[in-house]
Design a protein around this nucleic acid. Structure first.
Lengths: 241, 241
DNA sequence: TGCTGGTATTTGGTATGCCAAATTTCGACG
DNA sequence: CGTCGAAATTTGGCATACCAAATACCAGCA
């Protein structure tokens, strides 16, 4: 009976000494379809036109060389994630966020990242914070050659992601990644980064200093205000609907 | 051509004056399976035993009177939501959160709700805030007869949900609903509400007062500290792993 | 009795086919 | 020429069947 129990438990988290994991375990078509679709949506200029962007199951299944079933499962997941919406008898369309929704996302982002700053101030090691500063320096130096706002936006988001990871909370990282995905999508449409570029640089520096000084309240407030400023900017200068 | 364009647009968000929506539109098996599974998981005592809780596709499809296909799509959605995890050749298991994960959730909750308090302070009408107070009073009065911690926890969460809705951000509401779902699941296991009950009552009152006074910083701080206190309590008094 | 090896069974992943609803097409009629 | 409507087509939802992998079972052997 001990043998049976051992066998039944073998598939669970392998606590046995042998350090070999379930090899390759070629990912399923579902997973691959999910990744492929998400990648495609990421590289899609969602707000480039006003036409409804719609996908076709059969078309996708042909291109990916799989049947409709795994594609439908992947679509169901992306639907749950808020990236797609399947309209019966119409097609699967890529959702466009309204301006109000984007603002809500940025506000949620502000909430999560300011909490991350607070947690990072309390928990992150000096070494980790130093890495953040190093990252920022590199970011700042490269900023000169990065004139195109797309690239600046990417670097900007990367900085914020690094900051969030300092908190040690993988949940905060996951939630903000999701928000970044949507916010990033409108960077093709707007150039709101340009007039924020200079200000962002000093903002980032202040944030790092606050964390280094282990001033949780200040770090939290700086991050929150920094991101809420973006929300207000979008509110007044961006037109999506 | 104008006719065609009009026809092509009819299915989109009905901006036409006619205020009738696609009637019943009997929800798909996928949706029903999703709802049924989520309901089942909600009413399940996830942390009651240490055995892995696993579901069987064929069993579920039989019970719901549908084929495996829509069930699989529903499972894929719940998997994306983090409630289930499909292990090949093993079954679909209900995920148990580790203590660290639950703490991260409460911290994220603190982040989102404190932001909601800030936004509510700036945006909510006096009438809406008054409703919050009324809700709190009813809540407080009923508290006496609600000795069982389960029910107190439910009422407690309802109060926080009402507060979040005051912010007017449906995104914050959606994100916290998701977190509440997981946190609520461990209420069967722990009685951490009992010793927090008294303190919560006064905390809630202070929060309402801060919002009424339109003191955004104070409201935000009170909400944050209130929820972070729960996180620390779980950290030191709850054992899940 | 306990272990080994091979077979039977279970189970998730995928392909395929059908169906009903909705759209589009296109011809008849005013 | 525009409109109406019926047939043809498209398309997503669902059911079913099959497969390969992994487990469970069991006979046989030490």
């Amino acid at each position: 009976m001990n043998t049976k129990a051992a066998l039944n438990k073998r598939w669970q988290s392998g606590d046995n000494g042998l350090a070999i994991e379930r090899l390759p375990a070629k990912e399923s078509f579902k997973s691959r379809a999910y990744a492929a679709l998400k990648e495609a949506i990421t590289n899609m200029n969602i707000y480039g036109s006003d036409e409804p962007l719609l996908l076709d199951e059969r078309d996708i299944s042909e291109r990916l060389g799989a049947s409709r079933t795994p594609i439908r499962e992947a679509v169901a997941m992306l639907e749950q994630e808020g990236l797609l919406r399947a309209v019966p008898r119409r097609g699967i369309l890529v959702v466009r966020r309204t301006k109000a929704e984007v603002i809500e996302m940025i506000e949620a982002w502000a909430a999560l990242e300011s909490m991350a700053a607070r947690l990072a101030t309390a928990r992150a090691s000096d070494e980790a914070i130093a890495e953040l500063r190093a990252f920022f320096k590199e970011f700042d130096l490269n900023r000169i050659e990065r004139e195109r706002c797309d690239e600046y936006s990417t670097a900007n988001i990367a900085f914020h992601q690094a900051l969030i990871r300092l908190s040690g909370s993988s949940l905060l990282a996951a939630m903000t990644d999701n928000l970044f995905f949507h916010v990033r999508a409108i960077r093709h449409r707007t150039i709101f980064e340009m007039d924020r570029a200079q200000r962002s640089a000093s903002d980032h520096l202040e944030i790092i200093q606050a964390i280094e000084a282990r001033d949780a309240d200040r770090a939290e407030r700086l991050v929150r205000d920094h991101t809420l400023r973006l929300a207000r900017h979008v509110e007044s200068h961006v037109n999506l609907d």
